[in-house]
Design a protein around this nucleic acid. Structure first.
Length: 618
RNA sequence: GCCCCGGUAGCUCAGUUGGAUAGAGCAGCGGACUUCUAAUCCGCAGGUCGAAGGUUCGAAUCCUUCCCGGGGUGCCA
């Protein structure tokens, strides 16, 4: 993606363009197009960047790699960007940027948008996230979908996309009908419904359905893995009788029974009040306006199935309607033999809505990795019928972003002491409590900038620290893997953690405040890159643009996390080695202060893309 | 049975899509504070990249087979 190669913003892009041309010249092919394989140098002794194309191209052309590399550096025109490149090893080309070039590039990214492009303009994305179920409290299972989804949404927004956050609530179907039945049996007044009542009703509904105790015991006895055990514990397999009654309720609800519809709305309201409370703790941009539950699609499900049948893709099999695929035996069931619809049917309706009505050319489903096969099939079916193309016939990219499980320290599903599932609220409250404790303890030191702050201020900082710890820990490792929820490790103020990055940010705020107090302005100060620490910090800053675009393209938030950690780390090294306010001359003080400001804004912006707030003091 | 995911330092994890001596953090050891916030920084030590073959100038990365762990697998979501 060598876009905007003429803008003075991204060294990698500039080098890419220069070496692309140089390779063509060296090969005497004016119109040749070869990937120059520009990479950040791994080792400072190799310079800042390297071009690794010579070996591969030489092999393809039966040339000697080193000779070709020599010809390339002969041909390349780097202007004032870099020192003359050098050939090393089997044909690597090492590149060292000129300090003046670094300064002028920093100049270019030192603007409101930090040099980020807007490739999403004219594009729309729908992000399926959160995925709460009505009548159930949020638990750890919702944590990842919510914060990863929110980060994906924020990244796209930042790059100019129109973003639709889709909270695909489980607000329809048998489980809801069972809960409604249980509530009515208990004679609960739904106008004053409390979460507690709802929990009880849900549990009663489960009990009346005789959960599969035997299966669960068997799973433990056979040493089944955590996923299987979660599944069985959450299983809501019911007795025939309870299910029959729930089906009656569902039919009445479906036909618009006014009293039932009122009750249904009441339990949704009750659930969502609690959900939005919890989401507020998490600092995610998800509100009632993003609700679009299963019930939204309920009336078009027959039409979905009919469309597949009409296209010859929906085949009757054993009384059910299935979609078959060429490359696998497993079919996708879209209508049961009793005429009922399945979640696959709803998901197909949702795809059509998101692609056609919302006009999204990218769909991302932030859903548990266990649903891989399901999404493969649903996407496959959508593709067969052509619902993955927009009204303007643009191919939409459909992605399932599968994430792993959150486990306890024993590597088994996370439980409270009493053996119950952790509610998300309880988990977050504990994190906030821990964060507050640490912040308050620190503030007792009379040299601490937070010394003398009010209890309220300290708690606000503690909240930010606790939530940052949880979110960073979740987002910073690859999304597909399971991870162990270990608050001690997450909240540690040293190492690759959220608080570490927050700390770097707070230190910069402090230095800027002192600079301002001393009447020092960094505005329009020329960047002077002299020390190795300044150099490394400059290059780190210049990598922000590419990091954000790649993180967004690849849907890998942990890349941005890794970047922010490295930037914070480079800053700390710079901070240690390069006095800012105490530098010898004014030009250096101003240059360094401006650099501090740029780092601060980059950290703040990057953290914001992850949904993490950065306090000014801690 | 079939399909999918994972296996990298004592622990937790990266590894820029095939590049140089495989990198971070934690834990361990040794240094640096009358602080522009030491919640930090610098250094040392730590590896059969699950195993064996193969592809090539070059493999943690691609191919094949196998081992271990986890997940999924037709009318739940």
């Amino acid at each position: 993606m060598p876009q905007e190669t003429t803008t003075n913003i991204d060294p990698a892009a500039l080098l890419d363009a220069a070496f692309r041309t140089a390779i063509a010249t060296a090969l005497e092919e004016p119109d040749g197009d070869f990937d120059p394989v520009i990479r950040v140098a791994q080792n400072p002794e190799f310079g800042d960047y390297q071009c690794n194309a010579a070996m591969a191209v030489a092999k393809q052309r039966q040339l000697k790699p080193r000779d070709l590399a020599e010809r390339i550096i002969e041909a390349v025109d780097l202007g004032d960007l870099a020192e003359p490149p050098e050939v090393a090893g089997p044909g690597f080309i090492n590149i060292r940027l000129k300090p003046e070039a670094l300064g002028s590039m920093l100049e270019s990214i030192d603007e409101q948008g930090l040099g980020l492009p807007q490739p999403g303009e004219g594009h729309s994305i729908a992000v399926d996230l959160c995925g709460v179920n009505v009548a159930k409290q949020m638990h750890v299972g919702h944590l990842r979908s919510t914060i990863i989804g929110d980060a994906i949404a924020r990244l796209h927004e930042r790059l100019g996309w129109t973003v639709h956050r889709e909270n695909h609530l489980g607000d329809w179907g048998l489980p809801i009908a069972m809960t409604l039945t249980a509530l009515r049996d208990a004679g609960t007044d739904l106008r004053s419904l409390e979460l507690e009542d709802l929990n009880t009703a849900y549990r009663d509904a489960q009990l009346s359905g005789k959960p599969d105790r035997r299966g669960l015991e068997g799973a433990h006895a056979n040493g089944c893995g955590p996923h299987r055990i979660i599944e069985l514990e959450e299983q809501n397999a019911g007795s025939d009788e309870a299910i029959t009654r729930a089906k009656d309720t569902l039919i009445k609800l479906q036909s618009g029974d006014a009293a039932l519809v009122d009750d249904w709305n009441a339990i949704i309201d009750c659930t969502m009040r609690e959900v939005f409370d919890t989401l507020a703790m998490l600092n995610v941009k998800i509100g009632p306006e993003h609700n679009r539950g299963e019930s939204f699609y309920k009336d078009i499900l027959p039409e979905v199935v009919e469309a597949f049948i009409a296209a010859g893709l929906g085949i009757e099999d054993d009384g059910a309607i299935v979609v078959r695929f060429e490359d696998r035996d497993r079919p996708l069931l879209i209508r049961k033999s009793d005429g009922g619809f399945l979640y696959a049917t709803t998901d197909l309706a949702a795809i059509r809505h998101r692609v056609r009505t919302l006009d999204s050319d990218r769909l991302v489903y932030v859903v548990d990795a266990r649903q891989r096969d399901h999404f493969k099939d649903v996407f496959g079916a959508a593709h067969l019928i052509g619902w993955d193309r927009t009204e303007k016939d643009v191919q939409s990219d459909l992605h399932h972003l599968p994430f792993g499980a959150v486990l306890g320290k024993d590597k088994k599903p996370l439980k409270t002491r009493s053996g119950e599932n952790f509610t998300l609220r309880a988990l977050l409250e504990e994190a906030i409590e821990r964060g507050s404790k640490e912040v308050i303890a620190r503030s007792e030191d009379e040299h601490a900038p937070t010394h003398g702050a009010t209890e309220e201020e300290l708690r606000a900082i503690g909240r930010a620290v606790g939530i940052a710890a949880v979110k960073y820990a979740d987002l910073s490792s690859g999304v597909v893997k399971d991870y162990v929820f270990d608050l001690d490790r997450m909240i540690a103020f040293e190492g690759d953690t959220g608080p570490y990055i927050l700390y770097a940010h707070a230190r910069i705020c402090s230095i800027i405040a002192r600079g301002r107090a001393a009447g020092l302005s960094s505005e329009d100060a020329p960047f002077k890159i002299t020390t190795p620490e300044e150099r490394r910090l400059a290059i780190a800053l210049l990598r922000y643009r590419r990091t954000v675009t790649e993180t967004t393209d690849q849907l890998e938030p942990h890349r941005l996390c890794g970047y922010l950690h490295e930037l914070a780390n480079q800053y700390s090294a710079f901070y240690q080695a390069c006095p800012v306010l105490k530098a010898d001359d004014e030009a250096t003080r101003r240059s360094r202060l401006r650099m501090c400001d740029l780092v601060r804004r980059t950290l703040e912006d990057g953290l914001d893309l992850l949904g993490i707030e950065a306090p000014e003091r801690m």
